[in-house]
Computed example of a mutant assay.
Amino acid sequence: MSEFAGRNVFVAGASSGINLAIAHAFGAAGARVTVLSRSADKIEAAAAGLRDAGVDAQGIACDVRDYAGLEAAFAAARERHGALDVVVSGAAGNFLAPALKVSANAFKTVVDIDLLGTYNVFRASFDHLVKPGASLIAITAGQAVHPMSFQVHACAAKAGVNMVTKCLALEWGPAGVRVNAISPGPIADTEGMKRLADPERESAIKRRLALRDYGTKGDIAEAALYLSSGAAKYVTGTILNVDGGSDLGDASADALSA
């Protein structure tokens, strides 16, 4: 029997993409799952898909910028499933734009969804966690540590997410709560790749990766399972790169043939 059988998982930003894949992975491993996103129709469809797969799942519509709404969401999740073993915060917003085209409001919107949203999810979850033993996971990005043109808003937000992860790991470790983050690289079939990478540039992007290919949503889901498993019981405050080596820099030079 999987160690996740009967455990309770909450995934924010899970109407589609990587976060929904994480929810399905935990559900397939036997967990009960609550998924949250701001669109009522989309999150109910996501929850229905989980239930169709045999998962005890519910969907809750809430914007991660709404702290009071999140408090109610976590209370509802606990009422249905019990105290939470795993919380994943993955809601995000992004777009490509030069800084001179990013208004103050647009910058604030991305920071509020990514950074404030991550803090809100984790802070609102604390009183509903299994303690000791809970695993909190933020979904961050390479922009947190690598400055990128046309990404000032996302770089600022994700850098903050990394520091929230590390600071909460310090503060909440004594309660037995582990806090980590996953930093995905280029992941196929995601909204982020559709927005940030022109399909015509796919081969050039892959040539720069040490592993020469995009990752899958399943790769990120497996990392989330690992970070919440007994195998990672001594891991906290870690930013886990699951990126095919993209954090290492440009690997397009063929050193093996040199």
Rank of each mutant, 00 (worst) to 15 (best):
I18H: 11
D247A: 15
D247V: 09
R78M: 08
G90Y: 06
N8H: 12
H128R: 07
S252P: 11
V102N: 09
A92Q: 04
W172V: 01
A154L: 15
L211H: 11
A31W: 00
L36S: 14
D63L: 00
V33W: 07
L116P: 03
A45R: 12
L116Y: 13
F26M: 00
F95H: 13
V164R: 03
L168P: 11
N180H: 08
E191N: 13
V110L: 05
A46R: 06
A45Q: 10
T236S: 05
G59F: 06
G173T: 04
S135Q: 09
S135I: 04
G245N: 09
N180P: 00
S89N: 13
T236D: 12
L168N: 02
I239F: 14
Q143T: 13
A40Q: 09
A73S: 10
I113E: 01
V110E: 02
G59S: 06
K101F: 14
L129V: 04
G215L: 11
V161M: 10
I137N: 08
A40H: 06
S228V: 00
F107D: 10
T140C: 11
A210L: 15
R178N: 05
M148K: 15
L100I: 12
V88C: 11
L196M: 12
A144T: 06
T190F: 05
P132M: 06
A106D: 15
G160W: 07
